[in-house]
Design a protein around this nucleic acid. Structure first.
Lengths: 197, 197
DNA sequence: CTATAGAGTTACTCAATAGTAACATACTAT
DNA sequence: ATAGTATGTTACTATTGAGTAACTCTATAG
């Protein structure tokens, strides 16, 4: 017999559902074209109920960001524990990131990061992303030192890497025509050896 | 003595200014956070005046798209006239595209394409981008045939290419720390030979 | 078993802003 | 010069949607 959920657990679950539904709607219709009434309806509740779980509309973005950053950082932790080379770490990061950007909450974060109206939230969001970029830059630097990665501007490479991977998040749909495995393989091949024939 | 501008020319110029200012504001604050009053103020006119030049707010996006597509297609035309290889064409396309995405109207188009509320405008925008992607795919196919480009899924490569280049448009600022020349060089190097050391 | 906090509702306020009507002025072609 | 159109203004309408007040019902802790 499963232990019945405590109030706190139920509450957390409901918040998760709100975030998931909101993230999905934001990705499909966009943040401003999605009203809180729309989101409430997806849970079969009314708008004021949402305010029991979130501070305001923008808080949904902030909370999605929290979840997303946790998962992304966790993934970077995993690929960072000593591998053969910087290249290998970066390689695994790309694989990991692509598998993450199929999740609505992550996609929502990627699409809306740094766009909050609240000045503090916005600054924080930008800072958070800088932190991620910094971690990837470090991996690239390790790779350059051990000669597994071409000597390059690690800042620019890190940005370009995020750009292309984040681009995927905006169009990738699990039910679309592009297969995730093949997509990952192509990205890794491009990343590994460029496009030269 | 310079011939004074005709009404039609003056009108065209004013429309250009509106598009440019609107595009700039949309990139800085976002489409929904920018009101028509804001845009009007940038030209020192009032909101109803704008309606003399545009059908409605969304029409600004449509008109920016028209301008952007003209310039992008023109650039692709230029790099397509017979070069040594598919790779060379693609190489020049990348150079050309990066130089274009520093322009606010192009950036505005890139950021907002396919997001119109008007169903027809939206479908048209998506179709337009598909058309661009198709042209790049063709270049890639030429490169694969003449062995200047690695045998790969041309669809995925075209998408990834646009993703990374369009990513640049969202963060690149001409007054920022990243130098455009160095950025282009890094992209081309990555594109040419990947990241392997 | 019951007091209380949790979870939800209906019915509102209030602000922002897209778009319009009606009117005023300035150019330009004849 | 002047008719008429291009360009602009002020003052408005109408809608949307975020956020709140005030209330009901329900479950659980003691």
């Amino acid at each position: 017999m499963q232990k019945t959920l405590t109030r706190v657990e139920k509450r957390q679950q409901k918040l998760d559902v709100i975030l998931r539904n909101a993230a999905k709607a934001f990705m499909e219709r966009g943040y401003y074209k999605t009203s809180l009434d729309d989101i409430a309806k997806m849970q079969n509740v009314t708008k004021p109920t949402l305010y029991y779980y979130i501070k305001n509309k923008e808080d949904i973005l902030v909370k999605c960001e929290e979840v997303a950053l946790l998962r992304i950082n966790e993934m970077i932790d995993k690929v960072s524990v000593d591998q053969h080379s910087g290249f290998d770490m970066l390689y695994d990061f790309i694989k990991g990131y692509i598998s993450l950007v199929t999740d609505d909450i992550i996609r929502c974060h990627v699409r809306h990061r740094g766009q909050m109206e609240d000045v503090l939230a916005k600054e924080n969001s930008i800072k958070n992303h800088k932190q991620l970029e910094y971690r990837i830059r470090e991996i690239i630097r390790i790779g350059i030192k051990d000669n597994s990665i071409r000597d390059c501007n690690s800042t620019i490479l890190a940005i370009l890497l995020f750009d292309s991977l984040n681009g995927i998040s905006s169009w990738y749909k699990s039910d679309g025509q592009v297969n995730l495995g093949e997509l990952t393989a192509e990205v890794l091949a491009l990343f590994n050896g460029g496009v030269r024939g």
